[in-house]
């Protein structure tokens, strides 16, 4: 599904190398988690994959089902099936959440040569999906993320994911700012989307999210590289001993 090879990335504006040779393969239907200390490059990896400005790829490649991602505009990556759940979802005053969702769904359908969803059909689908995420009619009407609590914003991210049905989902610290109940709700939303054809890359600091979203593979990232890969037990090890032991071990 997602293949990253020897990815090197620096900041466009300054001479600062962030990713220093990331190698990562996420197979179809699998959930991979990336953990790592602050500043290890986890969020940069998610931004570079989704096509945000400000980064320069100096070496390596990233493909989605064989298609070169790094060559595509952000909207083309989305249409190809990539989705990033933002750590800090952006507020867009003046654009209704419903308008936003419908525009996005239909833009992707159009890009893939599919028929657009009718207003009635869209409404039916969005209402059903919103209900399972406890997103009420008012949240759907309000401007995108404006005045939403931290938990509401993250739930709204998962709603977008559910509506867009991407094949590769990247969750960037989706657990940050969530209380226990909200984390459970968000995790249930993600788990409901797990399927054979859909993969997840879950970026997190803490093991607790992985209690809810059970990963198949856990990677530890440090200083711009994947330094250790293992099973779910690796996350528990981090929780118990912190990163210091692991980093010392590979140093």
């Amino acid at each position: 599904m997602l293949e990253i090879k020897n990815l090197h990335v620096k900041l466009e504006e300054e001479d600062k190398q962030i990713l220093k040779g990331v190698d990562l393969t996420v197979e179809a239907g699998k959930v991979h988690a990336i953990m790592g200390p602050n500043g290890s490059g986890k969020s940069t990896l998610s931004y570079v994959l989704s096509g945000r400005d400000g980064y320069e790829v100096t070496d390596g490649e990233a493909t989605l089902d064989g298609e070169d991602l790094l060559d595509l505009d952000p909207e083309e990556r989305a249409a190809a099936g990539l989705f990033l759940a933002f750590q800090y979802p952006v507020e867009i005053p003046g654009v209704g959440n419903m308008t936003f969702l419908r525009t996005a769904v239909n833009a992707q359908r159009k890009a893939r040569g599919e028929e657009e969803m009718s207003a009635a059909e869209f409404l039916k689908v969005v209402r059903a999906k919103a209900k399972t995420l406890k997103i009420d009619a008012d949240m759907l009407k309000r401007p995108v993320n404006v005045g939403f609590s931290g938990g509401e914003k993250k739930r709204n991210e998962i709603l977008q994911m559910a509506m867009l049905e991407p094949k590769m989902c990247i969750l960037d610290e989706t657990d940050s700012g969530l209380d226990v109940d909200a984390m459970k709700l968000v995790s249930e939303g993600v788990n409901a989307l797990r399927s054979e054809g859909r993969s997840f890359l879950v970026i997190t600091h803490y093991q607790r999210l992985l209690d809810h979203i059970k990963p198949d593979v856990v990677h530890i990232m440090a200083a711009g590289r994947i330094v250790k890969t293992g099973g779910p037990e690796l996350a528990l090890e981090v929780e118990q001993n912190g990163y210091a032991d692991i980093l010392a071990e590979i140093a």
Binding site: A78, I92, T103, A104, A107, L164
Partner: peptide
């Protein structure tokens, strides 16, 4: 970027 990342040209 947020809109584009959702597939809006």
């Amino acid at each position: 970027f947020y809109l584009r990342s959702r597939g809006v040209p």
